[in-house]
Amino acid sequence: MTEEEKKSFWQNMKEVIYGMASHDMSRYALRTRASMEHLFILITMGDMIGVPILPPYYSLRLLPYVVPQISTWKRRLLREKDVSDAMF
């Protein structure tokens, strides 16, 4: 086995082990993270969908950072059942 092959073998092994051991965990963590993100937008930008929140003055400061997430967030809140519930 050349040096090259040895390297790629270990690389593959690493990925297989990652896939077996922690891929599921990290996917789960990412999903939790996404739910929290939506919760976060709700408690800072709730005014957008009619949920009054405390001080809109300072929440405006956070607005620029969540601009890309706003539409997915609204879609998710309006959905009665999450498609991913059935998939996973």
């Binding site: 005014d47 809109p56 003055y57 405006l60 601009v67 706003i70």
Partner: peptide, 14 residues
């Protein structure tokens, strides 16, 4: 959508 929010937030009494 964002512009509307900025304007609505500024109309809040607080």
């Amino acid at each position: 959508e964002i512009e509307q929010y900025i304007q609505a937030a500024s109309a809040e009494p607080a």
